[in-house]
């Protein structure tokens, strides 16, 4: 092979706009992340086993205690599954931090930074791949839920709307953890930093138990944080009832989180000490 390298390199194509560049490069990076998911099955197994354990544990261990405090006519499994969806999306977002921190540690990030690719592509590719993983996990948890007695009460379109809301929330959370991953730079620290933040968000919420059983000061927090508001919105979409207000609140959270953390993440990526 002979190369003619005196003049211009091969990279002649320039995308028409910044958005086109982001989509094109972001999808290349997402493709790469999804291959890793397929080729290293433990990555996927870990993110499915954990919600499976949670759903079984809450259904059979805590179900009896929680049931009496539920609204009349609502079974615990119907209450629980929307909460499990949201919890899955929240814990899954840790993978965004771990994945990006790993890329920083291996030096792959340095190579990406030296390439003529969109500055947002590495982050967009990662959060998009994590979104795809969430689609898989939520589908699986729906099947598991059905096996355990979960039923849709307000029609399939509303249920699918609920699933989209869960995915949107997971995507928003991924951007928070993109910033965490870029900030800490190594996977172990990313994981250690994430759990103490995520655990109170998930457990001091309406994901698994009705907020009314909590002490007053905790209710104030639990009622107004995004995990509860998303869980409530999804629950209303599944069980029936006026959902519009809850859904809007959840969407505002998602939009707000992305609006703050996506530019911050890209700033971290561009930041050249």
């Amino acid at each position: 092979m002979t190369t003619t390298t005196t003049g211009r390199p091969l990279s002649a194509e320039r995308p028409s706009s910044r958005i086109a560049a982001t989509v094109r490069d972001g999808s290349a990076v997402a493709w790469r992340n999804l291959i890793a998911l397929r080729r290293v099955p433990r990555l996927l197994v870990f993110s499915t086993v954990q919600p499976l354990v949670f759903v079984l544990m809450f259904r059979y261990v805590f179900g009896g205690v929680v049931s009496p405090s539920l609204p009349p006519g609502v079974s615990y499994v119907d209450f629980l599954i929307p909460g499990i969806f949201v919890q899955t999306a929240v814990f899954g977002s840790m993978n965004t931090a771990i994945g990006l921190a790993t890329d920083m540690q291996t030096g792959l990030m340095e190579r990406f930074r030296s390439l003529p690719m969109a500055r947002s592509a590495v982050l967009v590719g990662r959060t998009t791949a994590d979104l795809a993983r969430n689609v898989f996990v939520v589908t699986l948890m729906t099947a598991v839920g059905f096996a355990l007695g979960f039923r849709i009460h307000a029609g399939v379109p509303a249920f699918l709307g609920g699933v989209l809301l869960v995915l949107a929330f997971g995507f928003a959370m991924s951007w928070i953890f993109a910033v965490v991953g870029m900030g800490v730079g190594d996977p172990e620290t990313a994981q250690a930093a994430a759990f103490p933040v995520l655990a109170p968000l998930v457990f001091a919420s309406s994901a698994f138990v009705p907020v009314a059983t909590m002490p007053g000061w905790l209710q104030a927090f639990a009622n107004h944080q995004p995990v509860s508001q998303t869980a409530e919105a999804v629950r209303t979409l599944v069980l029936g009832g006026p959902a519009t207000g809850d859904v809007w609140q959840a969407l505002v959270w998602d939009a707000g989180i992305v609006a703050v953390f996506a530019p911050l993440g890209v700033w971290f990526y561009r930041r050249v000490v």
């Binding site: 091969l10 194509e13 493709w31 790469r32």
Partner: peptide, 14 residues
């Protein structure tokens, strides 16, 4: 091969 193709795509090769 996939590594090289990824770099190719990100380098904006045709």
């Amino acid at each position: 091969r996939e590594n090289l193709r990824l770099i190719g795509r990100l380098s904006r090769l045709a």
